[in-house]
């Protein structure tokens, strides 16, 4: 017998090209206030807190310690941090709630891409002996994946452009690009500006709660029916870049294939990656994919995966979805993937 655990609140900042007028904690804190206000909880009421962020984005070791100032960790709190996208912080919190050690959890993630050059920063997560010394940037690696898909006949440039256009046509007020974004020039061929995520800074937070506590805090909790994540081999040269077996396996373990979902929030920073994910997740044409616009509309590093779970949950909260899938990714060309299946109570 395991406990039912739900996402009961979601909040996010605007994603902005630059937030140089505020520090990380100044960017994050209003989001924490927002998400707590939605539940009426205070920091002291929260059983467990977990966050995701990256020192390499900040250019500073232990950068997450300053963000903790925004939480108000006094009296001391039960707290942890992953050097990963916040979706994995949510996973850690979900596990913690399953143990029964806590009934509520605050999960947050933030990232500022503006201080550095994120394309170059991400080269530092590649094999340090054979690949990182060549400085292949994140767009180049995604372009290799896109070309592999085109060669395999899975997509073509107009289809990719359509993904970009559809994503940015979202009515999400938090989306970074305002209005239509032209397909643009090649950044690294075959990927054009419109195939690449906007570079932005932002923060995201959710609150989890278990059992009856979830019903107390939220009119229609987004119950986490399944949550799983899987990693693949690191080297691009040993993987089939047109497929995402780790996504498929995580989805299977999360029970995504047991019944159809009506909505999917996919963390596909590059247009071609949506093609890979749709196939791996066997999403039919009737599934609403990325109504939020996804990472092509706003991609705050380290937070964009958690935002997918938050966006999917928010649709359930609002009664716009009954069963949604949320996905988060990490690493080059979808190396690591997480899948959550969320459901609302029957209406």
């Amino acid at each position: 017998m395991t406990r039912d655990i739900a996402v009961v609140a979601f909040a996010q900042s605007d994603t902005l090209r630059s937030t140089e007028e505020v520090s990380e904690v100044e960017m994050l804190m209003p989001v924490l206030h927002d998400v707590l206000a939605r539940t009426g909880l205070k920091t002291a009421d929260i059983g467990f807190t977990c966050s995701g962020s990256s020192d390499y984005l900040a250019g500073r070791a232990f950068s997450f310690t300053l963000a903790l100032d925004g939480v108000g960790a006094w009296p001391p709190i039960s707290e942890s941090h992953v050097e990963m996208d916040g979706a994995w912080a949510l996973y850690e919190a979900w596990v913690k709630l399953r143990t029964g050690d806590a009934d509520t959890a605050l999960v947050y993630a933030y990232g500022k891409s503006s201080p550095g050059s994120v394309r170059d920063v991400l080269t530092r997560q590649l094999d340090p002996y054979y690949v990182a010394p060549l400085w292949p940037d994140s767009v180049a690696l995604a372009a290799l994946q896109a070309q592999a898909l085109i060669d395999a006949g899975e997509t073509d440039e107009p289809a990719l452009a359509a993904i970009g256009a559809r994503s940015r046509a979202t009515d999400n007020p938090r989306a970074q690009p305002r209005g239509p974004v032209p397909r643009g020039d090649y950044v690294v061929r075959p990927l054009r500006t419109g195939d690449c995520p906007p570079i932005g800074d932002g923060a995201v937070a959710v609150v989890l709660a278990a059992g009856e506590r979830a019903r107390d805090l939220c009119g229609r909790p987004a119950w986490i029916r399944g949550l799983d994540h899987r990693i693949e081999a690191h080297s691009l040269g040993v993987r089939d870049l047109t497929d995402s077996p780790s996504t498929r396996l995580a989805a299977e373990r999360a029970g995504a294939f047991e019944r159809p979902v009506d909505t999917a929030e996919l963390h596909a920073p590059f247009s071609a990656q949506e093609v890979v994910l749709r196939r791996a997740l066997k999403l039919g044409g009737d599934v609403r994919v990325n109504p939020s616009g996804g990472a092509l509309a706003a991609n705050p590093m380290m937070a964009a995966g958690l935002a997918r779970i938050g966006e999917a949950a928010a649709r359930i909260h609002r009664g716009e979805s009954d069963r949604a899938l949320a996905h988060a990714t990490s690493g080059p060309c979808l190396q690591q993937n997480l899948v959550a299946v969320l459901e609302g109570d029957p209406r």
């Binding site: 990256s54 020192d55 390499y56 997450f64 942890s80 941090h81 992953v82 050097e83 990963m84 994995w88 996973y91 850690e92 920063v121 991400l122 530092r124 997560q125 590649l126 094999d127 340090p128 990182a132 799983d228 994540h229 899987r230 990693i231 693949e232 081999a233 690191h234 080297s235 077996p245 780790s246 396996l249 990490s330 690493g331 080059p332 190396q335 690591q336």
Partner: peptide, 23 residues
């Protein structure tokens, strides 16, 4: 090495499994 667990997945037999990195 940024998020070195990505590169270490193979060495730790984590391919096809869940892998997390705490800091």
């Amino acid at each position: 090495v940024m998020m070195p667990e990505l590169y270490l997945a193979d060495a730790l037999g984590a391919v096809g499994k869940p892998m997390m990195r705490v800091h």
